[in-house]
């Protein structure tokens, strides 16, 4: 079946089929397969060097695909130029052209298509209005704050009416307060436009807050791709459990298990699963208190206690302690050998 079948509803906006990126002998992205359902917010999450940015740049067409295929709206775009793919990219540094005003930056793609000046400026103003930047349309990029530059970059990407918007760490240059606000706005825009966003980040909070589909990557491979809640409640392996945080990865009777830190308590050894250790740190976090434990095998574990629970029965650094949890809260992970 070589061509998309017109009468079938398209199910996926973007598909990667064993997409591979090699730089010389180094494999940066290793046979990654992924299907992103229609109009979803997809976050590629992972530590630096995990291949998430290379994956994004292959989808954008800024890196050639060494092997495998990339499909957008059921069309194989593997060998197409970036502009022919229906993708638009928002760069980490925003890459606003420093010699052009905001208006000319946003109107750039229309100019490349030969749209007359008055027309392209009118359209660019519409898109600047969409991101509330219409009042600063004549400013140069250097005169804008980071947040404002980001909005202009967004307008410049959206004016191409992309089928898929690609965002490369879009929030990393913003201060934490602004980050939360822009995060909300990105999600709102994605819902309003009804297109797929693919957002690269190394922040698990960002991915949790935004994603419909959260893709955790490491060493060029996908470790888990699922809804955030699924990833958090049933991490696929110990890497995912450790990377998304909030989990204790422990040795269970049948191999590694993950237990959410907020489901762990201090207690006494009894019938329920437990592990003995020593309190290594007590961190007051406002609504919760985090207790760090050193346990038998040198590994650390942590317990997140609601504040009133902790202050009802406070413990000190250096005390012996036993961490307990309920059987149903432990989630089995793959054995370390099976990960490779």
């Amino acid at each position: 079946m070589d061509h998309p079948v017109p009468h079938l509803e398209r199910r996926f906006d973007v598909e990667l089929v064993a997409a591979t990126k090699r730089y010389g002998g180094v494999v940066a992205v290793d046979r990654v397969s992924l299907r992103i359902p229609r109009a979803s917010y997809c976050c590629l999450l992972g530590p630096s060097g995990c291949g998430k940015t290379s994956t994004l740049r292959m989808i954008a067409g800024h890196e050639t695909v060494s092997d495998g295929d990339i499909l957008i709206h059921d069309e194989n775009v593997t060998d197409l130029a970036p502009a022919e793919r229906g993708t638009a990219m928002m760069f980490q540094s925003y890459a606003l052209f420093p010699h052009l005003s905001c208006l000319d930056n946003v109107a750039f793609s229309l100019k490349a298509r030969g749209v007359p000046k008055a027309q392209r400026h009118a359209k660019a103003m519409e898109y600047l209005a969409l991101v509330h930047m219409d009042r600063l349309s004549h400013r140069m990029p250097a005169e804008l704050s980071g947040g404002q530059q980001q909005r202009v970059a967004l307008a410049r990407a959206l004016i191409t009416e992309p089928r898929v918007l690609l965002l490369d760490e879009p929030l990393s240059a913003l201060d934490p307060f602004l980050r939360t606000r822009v995060r909300e706005e990105l999600k709102r825009l994605q819902r309003e436009l009804g297109i797929t966003f693919i957002h690269v980040t190394h922040s698990q909070d960002e991915a949790m807050a935004l994603a419909d589909l959260m893709v955790v990557m490491d060493e060029g491979r996908i470790r888990q791709a699922a809804a955030p809640r699924e990833v958090f409640e049933r991490p696929a392996d110990s890497f995912v459990a450790k990377f998304i945080g909030g989990h204790n990865v422990l040795n269970g009777p049948d191999g590694l298990i993950a237990v959410r830190a907020d489901r762990c308590r201090l207690g006494a050894p009894g019938d329920q699963p437990h592990i003995a250790g020593r309190i290594a740190a007590v961190e007051y976090l406002g609504t919760t208190v985090r207790l760090a434990l050193t346990v038998g095998d040198g590994e650390g574990a942590s317990i997140l206690l609601p504040d009133e629970l902790f202050f009802a029965n406070p413990v000190q650094m250096g005390e012996e302690a036993v961490m307990v949890w309920r059987e149903q809260d432990s989630h089995p992970l793959d054995l370390p050998a099976a990960a490779e």
Binding site: P4, V32, V77, R221, A225, A236
Partner: peptide
């Protein structure tokens, strides 16, 4: 295991559409 859990599998033997 890299296959995403939410995405339905493409019928076996179905190749990607030809590259333009």
């Amino acid at each position: 295991s890299a296959e995403p859990a939410t995405a339905a599998a493409r019928p076996a033997g179905m190749a990607a559409p030809a590259r333009r």
